[in-house]
Design a protein around this nucleic acid. Structure first.
Length: 270
DNA sequence: ACCCTCCTGTCA
DNA sequence: TGACAGGAGGGT
């Protein structure tokens, strides 16, 4: 479920809870958790919590700073949640897969479908994704034109590629293409200058607006406080098959592309 | 481009 | 009961 805005929301909320706290104990509650080799993390303190593509990146340092730092990348996939549980908080622990006990509370990883992953790294570079972050300064119109140049895929599939742009998923791609008035079936490399400019602008605007709303809760998403996002009230097309397009009133269509639902409007997406 | 897999839950 | 779900990786 979580795409860039949801992951950014979680990282921002966890930061004040986790930074400068010491890990007292790390436990894996589910032996089937997709976890890399587990280094010893007890006794280390958390120095940074950031977002890297769709992953939450947690940096640990040893208390005396002699040992090498350590990075954990958590990918939430479809139903993963990272929840901060203060000492007194009562939290439903069903589907609890892993937990970090800290000074004054716990970080819980809860994941019904078990698709979520933990990956541990010894350097930040290795934890970094290959694609461009659409919220970074690097993501300019020119960069988008460069990246799409020569891409023979349809633009829906292309936007989902994490090796080009990171962070977009099924919901926001439908929303962005609708806002930019571009059909999801267009070949990425065929977009002209004006279309690329609209696409670039709406990628930024929609992601930022979604972050301002703590993401979208379509069914499962909860942020680090256990609360739902509120961007779903702004969804123009996603999951709105048959309803009137808010721009031109044509009925919204649902079609399957690459085995995934795409929602779009033939009235205004060309 | 298509297919399938991982896994669990919910809804028509 | 079957279709479908914010992801991603594999195969042909």
């Amino acid at each position: 479920m979580p795409e860039l805005p949801e992951v950014e929301t979680v990282a921002r909320q966890l930061r004040p809870c986790l930074v400068e706290r010491t890990v007292l104990r790390f436990r894996i509650h589910d032996p089937r958790l997709r976890n890399g080799k587990t280094p010893s993390v007890a006794g280390k303190s958390i120095v940074r919590v950031t977002r890297s593509g769709k992953r939450v990146l947690i940096e640990f340092a040893s208390a005396n700073r002699t040992a090498k730092p350590l990075w954990l990348a958590v990918h939430l996939r479809m139903t993963g949640r990272l929840t901060w549980a203060a000492e007194s908080a009562r939290i439903d622990r069903s589907h609890l897969r892993a937990s970090f006990r800290l000074d004054r509370g716990s970080l819980l990883f809860i994941d019904t479908r078990r698709f979520g992953t933990f990956d541990w790294y010894r350097s930040r570079e290795r934890a970094a994704p290959s694609g461009t972050d659409p919220l970074s300064d690097e993501f300019t119109r020119r960069k988008l034109a460069e990246l799409t140049g020569g891409a023979r895929q349809n633009v829906k599939a292309w936007l989902l590629r994490q090796d080009r742009l990171v962070g977009l998923g099924n919901i926001y791609v439908s929303e962005i293409l609708h806002a930019a008035r571009i059909s999801p079936f267009r070949i990425a490399a065929s977009l002209d200058r004006a279309e690329l400019a609209r696409l670039h602008g709406w990628i930024r605007r929609i992601l930022e607006r979604a972050i301002d709303n703590c993401g979208t809760t379509f069914s499962d998403f909860q942020d680090a406080r256990g609360l739902e996002g509120s961007y779903q009230q702004f969804l123009a097309v996603y999951s709105r098959e048959g309803q009137a397009c808010p721009r031109c009133a044509e009925p919204i269509l649902r079609e399957v592309q690459q085995q995934r639902s795409t929602f779009h409007c033939v009235g205004c997406q060309k």
